[in-house]
Amino acid sequence: MASLWEYANPKKFIDTTDKVLPWVSVLAVLCLATGLIWGFFFTPDDFRQGSTVKIIYLHVPSALMAINAWIMMLLASLIWVVRRHHVSALAARAAAPVGVVMTVIALATGAIWGQPMWGTWWAWDPRLTSFLILFLFYLGYIALWEAIENDDTAADLTSILCIVGSVFALLSRYAVLFWNQGLHQGASLSLDKEENVADVFYFPLLVCIAGFVFLFIALVFLRTQTEIRARRMRALLARDRMEA
């Protein structure tokens, strides 16, 4: 019976992901193409929002993945702290830039959507604000990885930052909800669409979300492979320096 931890072996990880990667990539392209074409061209315009509503097919999946990427980094960080598998730390490192891009897409599409709907590019709505804060957390995490030379030290420090940061991100989320209720009146700008999305929009949206999930998995696999090889190269160079 193969244990899950076998994939903590860098070579095994690369071998396995090499086999899986083409399939995941194809799935990502298929789902995204189907979902986006279906969503953009074969759904009716919303009676209130017109065709602008269709940005939902980029906005919602990217926002979902922005949060999921952070959760994945948190899990990988915990695995590194507890079991000290290098692949785990490198996977967390690999996921961070993907998460940032997802956050930026969510923020940008949100602004583009918000402009015609609310007449403004930006409002300090709780959700928008939470995503902005999430973006700052990502930046700090990546900056810390880049700043530290020793890979193991960097893995340890970023893991602890990720764990502590997750607690504070959650706190910020509630703080922002509280703060906004204190400043603005209620939910006139609510972004909560799950309740008012009709089935015609719902199914292509599901396909798009699946596409983003596969895209995320493919990118993280690819980037983790790159990080493993880069790490190995640095290790070999360090050995050579010591020999010399």
Partner: peptide, 13 residues
Amino acid sequence: VRQELDDFDEAFL
């Protein structure tokens, strides 16, 4: 002494 590289985590040391 320089170790032979195996393919597990020691590849990083």
